[in-house]
Design a protein around this nucleic acid. Sequence first.
DNA 1: TTTGTGCATTGATGTATGATAAGTAATACC
DNA 2: GGTATTACTTATCATACATCAATGCACAAA
Lengths: 196, 196
Amino acid sequence: MQNFTKYLKTKANIAEPEFELLIKKVELRNVEKGELLLRSGEVCRHSFFVENGLLRSYTVDDAGKEHIIQFGSENWIVSDRSSAFFNEPSDLFIDAVEDTKVVLISSDFINEASEISASFRNYNQIALQNHIRHQQKRINLLLSASAELRYMNFIKLYPDLTLRVPQWMIASYLGITPESLSRVRKELAHKNFKPN
Amino acid sequence: MQNFTKYLKTKANIAEPEFELLIKKVELRNVEKGELLLRSGEVCRHSFFVENGLLRSYTVDDAGKEHIIQFGSENWIVSDRSSAFFNEPSDLFIDAVEDTKVVLISSDFINEASEISASFRNYNQIALQNHIRHQQKRINLLLSASAELRYMNFIKLYPDLTLRVPQWMIASYLGITPESLSRVRKELAHKNFKPN
DNA sequence: TTTGTGCATTGATGTATGATAAGTAATACC
DNA sequence: GGTATTACTTATCATACATCAATGCACAAA
């Protein structure tokens, strides 16, 4: 759990005595590629900190089509915040895109950490605000940008994911079909190799 | 400021002595229809609590087109949370759709209220979580639903706004053109009046 | 090596929505 | 009350993206 440790100590700025207390409350778990960590309809009881590997959260619409809400690779937390916070059934599925080691963080852990440590409270606040900022950017892109622009933005934001994630998942994240993404890529390749 | 008062006392659960202290720190302001409260590029220094009337926040893309991010009517708070929290220049414009009375809430106010009152802290937390939940639903709709579905969802969620807001703004919120919205409405009217 | 399975590409065709333009209705302004 | 603006609708055509179907590749299983 080196990554998670580092995360608690550095980012959330938790000092040694509190750290020892808290670290006991989390659990490490190996998740196989394709394994589900949360199903739509269940209440989300954990946040998943990715030690290594890659998770995704997604919805499934009435036609059975998947729509990817979020990817989470190393040092990211994947969860359905709303479901966990409000104790409501989730709309999301969460599963592993690659074999993944996750740290299970319970709501309990969060509450306790918040009580113990002002800097954790503070960090959590920042995380929420970041989430909001990120979502707002995405909404704005979906409202205003073409598939091509959205893809270019994705590459810029997540160059690593662009390599690790199959294209059809990227397409799903962007809100287009794999076929369309393939065409967009072709377009971009043309533009870049004959720039006149 | 009856609405704001009620909001502080009831929702945020602020008791009398603290209330007296806090209420001094806010400012009431009349905003004329069309008047701008925030421009893209500025840092957002206030949250705007709507006493009565209607605000909107929106972006403007490279082609000069507006994309509405949020509406806020009575008892809602409109702001660029990210800009205010991180002290960054905003991407948003905020202006008044109707003549509006707003209560100006500074970051200062929020910090102070958070220090004074645990229940305000708690309330603020809930507000952030609500914001995230709401944004996620919107992202999911933009990814998965047709213009028609998105419009039906809008009506269900904001029946009041559907009446108060001009259609072209609703279209902008949905991510379609006013012409498309007009078509969608015609479709829906047909379906509802000849349901066989 | 063969066979299968999942993913990316490509082409043909369809469709929802965009762009443009014009007309009509509603509202605001002298 | 008339005139100018602004909003909404309708019609036509244009386009981005979806759908469907076929093919080609990997890579894994047999």
